[in-house]
Design a protein around this nucleic acid. Sequence first.
DNA 1: TGTTAGCACTCTTGCCGTTCGACTGCTAAT
DNA 2: ATTAGCAGTCGAACGGCAAGAGTGCTAACA
Lengths: 341, 341
Amino acid sequence: MLSDRKKKILCAVVDSYIERATPVASKDIRDEYLPDCSSATIRNELSTLESMGYLIQPHVSAGRIPSEKAFRFYVNELMYESNLTTAEAEMIEQYLNRKVGSLEDVMTAVTHIIAEITNYTSVVVKEDMSDTITAIKLLDLSNGKLLVVIVTDSRVLKDGMVDLPDDFDERMIASAQKWLNKIFCGKHVSEFINFDYPFALVNDEFAQYNALFKKIIDVLKKVSLMNGMDVEMYGENKMLAHSEYANVENARKFLSEMEDKERIAEILTNDGGEDGSTTVKIGSEENAPEGCAVVTTRVSLGDNVSGSIGVIGPVRMNYRKVLSVLDKISEIIIDLVGKGE
Amino acid sequence: MLSDRKKKILCAVVDSYIERATPVASKDIRDEYLPDCSSATIRNELSTLESMGYLIQPHVSAGRIPSEKAFRFYVNELMYESNLTTAEAEMIEQYLNRKVGSLEDVMTAVTHIIAEITNYTSVVVKEDMSDTITAIKLLDLSNGKLLVVIVTDSRVLKDGMVDLPDDFDERMIASAQKWLNKIFCGKHVSEFINFDYPFALVNDEFAQYNALFKKIIDVLKKVSLMNGMDVEMYGENKMLAHSEYANVENARKFLSEMEDKERIAEILTNDGGEDGSTTVKIGSEENAPEGCAVVTTRVSLGDNVSGSIGVIGPVRMNYRKVLSVLDKISEIIIDLVGKGE
DNA sequence: TGTTAGCACTCTTGCCGTTCGACTGCTAAT
DNA sequence: ATTAGCAGTCGAACGGCAAGAGTGCTAACA
């Protein structure tokens, strides 16, 4: 457990680093955050904080910068909540209320306003799982692969591929198909997502189908996820304004990571969560883009339609601001969606 | 008129600069392009080419780089046509034939394949002017502004604003509306675009309407243009790989210029042109993005639907390759569209 | 034991001068 | 008209130097 003073100092380092992006010196902390103790004392504390893994010293005559562990701790325990300025809050209200229209328009508007206010990249993912499954077909491509086709009421065909075990014949494929249809037909696509392969379902007769079934259901999951997904992104370029991307190589890497919308969507959605819940992924912690943190808020957009609103910024992002912006936005969205029904 | 040798030398400078992005020295030219004369001779020629405005010397101990004038001359007269490698041609064929689908899918596929092959940014603009006008309505907002609404058969309402002269009353607005409907109802939206305000149409009685009419028609033009337009862009990031964007400030400027899709669309479409015609805009010549050249090919996508396929690259782009890629692509597109009808 | 002043030490940054090399322009010869 | 040769210019790279930023350590002090 950290002493109160250590916490204060750590918080000071993080705050200062978020603002200035330069190593923080003991004297700076004294002058700006802790006037009632000497820089030498702070140096001692910094030194132990470093050995605890919270701080990093780029070189001996530089100050300290926070480690990812420090950011994590900051987000979880140190950071005090803040409110948007009324100007910002009004700006958001106005912007979103002006744009009441289709869900797509709102999504676009949301990414824009977030990116403008935060100066980071903003992403909104909509997962529409409201389609009803009409049929599931398994097609033997006779090259050892099986094509999985999902037919839904919105007449969209969705397909994916599975490797077929050697010892499967036509008859077995047919009965696998029968089983799948029996389980899923008439249900929402969302069933796939939460479907936990029930072991009991597989009696002795079907033991051999076990592996294949699992594979197929995984494909169904993935395919239906991808097809019901809509990703909007805005403000990739805003990132170039931050010092992390002062050299083009980093910028290029970031922008090309941003091109993989599927991966980004996956990052925003992979830990479900309640309506209104917020997640922060920092740096290498999860699959976040290199050197980035991702803040996500979940909102429900209707029956079987859920949304994730995210901000992607450097690990050194202004979490306070981002969190309060997301708070405000999700509040408005929930309100809008509520009205719409 | 330039001597043959001057042309050869100029061409060598441009070719080399396109490839290497570094100033070209007299010796380089001798070694690689003109082995049968001395570097001193070439130096003399370079010197006069410079005084003619074709070349620029960054500093005395550097070679020369081509001016925009040189690129213009190169594109118009010097550059010999080239063909794609068969590998590339096949790649394009395959990629586009695999993706036969909606027009939108094809547009997306086109931008992708172009960007991949050329390593520049690619843009496709579709202008759909096939809607039929059902009604035009003028709404007095009673704040000195007039709301112009276009109703088309595809049930999309499109609107724009016009300042109303002080001395206009309700009755006058009503008759202006009557006139507009008389002229345009039942016609294609494309009529706006080519509509030249006919002076004869305005007899004495309507003289006072003159200015307003012009304004309204301009709005109609703009609104219908913008609404019928569909812009796809891909490969903005590819540009960061080129040395022109080695510093982030340039990159940022470029990317933010690319965000203004309307402007880009305008650049790609503002000089109409026949089906299959190709235009090259170099640097400051037109409204091209800073330091960039834009190559555009027009293709027809059906009745009253036209497309522009464009490549945006640094002024020092590989025009030969870009032109041959666009050639190939437009050939395929014309074929695809032809089949589709 | 915790805090602090002071100082020696380290390491980066910016600057300056020098060298090296890349090209050119000019001159004089062919 | 062409060319070899040479003097001259300028940028890029390098190394050394001084200044500045911050630290860690020590010793004194509450």
